[in-house]
């Protein structure tokens, strides 16, 4: 059973009097434990595809399966549950809750899941250390740099050990050194926990970490390369 399967997805946005095909008959299958990079220039449809996979947005047509379960016809509540329990998100634009500290943001998903405080604390401690935010646990987002905020978002996405992590340009605000560290962390988690990663990016360096590179252009898949073979 594949981790993610999309069949013939279409999504059209209307901008003014123009129809924009954000997804144009997209079909992909991603196996469990794969490390996939979704690459496209800006406006290529990466975010739209990730949102469809993550149950945040319903495509106009086509089918989406996560863990073998069809999700494009689920109710809002069921989708919320799916996101909460099975998927870790790093969003492109807005990631952290301003009134919560770094640690509280990292623990947020686990807390909503209902995880006991002690267990939460243990996991957030470990993950904050891993992303290099030790000592900054008490800071609010406004008191951190863009890179630090991004790392908090990543920490939150992986803290609850979801089976699938969807990251939308996770390195966008990071310097190259931090970006490398982050990608190494992703690789590590992918290896150790068999977590499936789908990372949207147009950062060349990020792509080199991926086992599989899917290129998109104008809402269509134009290339699908298994980089491990190369």
């Amino acid at each position: 059973m594949s981790a993610v399967r999309c069949v013939d997805l279409c999504k059209t946005y209307r901008q003014g009097d123009q129809d924009i095909k954000a997804l144009d008959h997209v079909s992909i299958e991603i196996g469990k434990g794969e490390f996939v990079c979704l690459s496209a220039p800006s406006g290529g449809g990466k975010t739209t595809l990730l949102n469809a996979i993550g149950g945040l947005d319903i495509p106009d047509s086509g089918e989406v399966y996560v863990d073998g379960e069809r999700i494009d016809n689920l109710s809002k509540g069921e989708l919320a549950d799916l996101r909460l329990q099975h998927i870790g998100f790093v969003f492109q634009a807005y990631n952290l809750i301003p009134v919560l500290s770094a640690r509280e943001n990292v623990e947020f998903v686990m807390q909503v899941q209902g995880m006991p405080a002690a267990e939460r604390r243990e996991k957030s401690n470990a993950i904050l250390k891993e992303v290099g935010l030790e000592g900054l646990e008490g800071r609010r987002p406004a008191e951190m740099s863009g890179g630090q905020q991004q790392r908090v978002a990543v920490a939150r996405a992986i803290a609850s050990r979801p089976a699938l992590v969807l990251a939308d340009e996770p390195t966008a605000n990071l310097d190259s050194k931090t970006a490398d560290e982050l990608m190494e962390l992703f690789t590590l988690l992918n290896k150790h926990h068999n977590t499936t990663f789908v990372i949207a990016t147009h950062d060349q360096r990020v792509m080199t970490y991926a086992g599989r590179l899917i290129r998109m252009l104008d809402g269509r898949i134009v290339d699908d390369i298994d980089q491990r073979a190369a």
């Binding site: 809002k76 919320a80 909460l84 990631n95 809750i97 947020f108 909503v112």
Partner: peptide
């Protein structure tokens, strides 16, 4: 709007 949307996106229930 945005942080409420974020919480919903992360899987918090509308009731919450």
């Amino acid at each position: 709007v945005r942080e409420i949307g974020l919480m919903l996106a992360l899987g918090m229930k509308p009731g919450s």
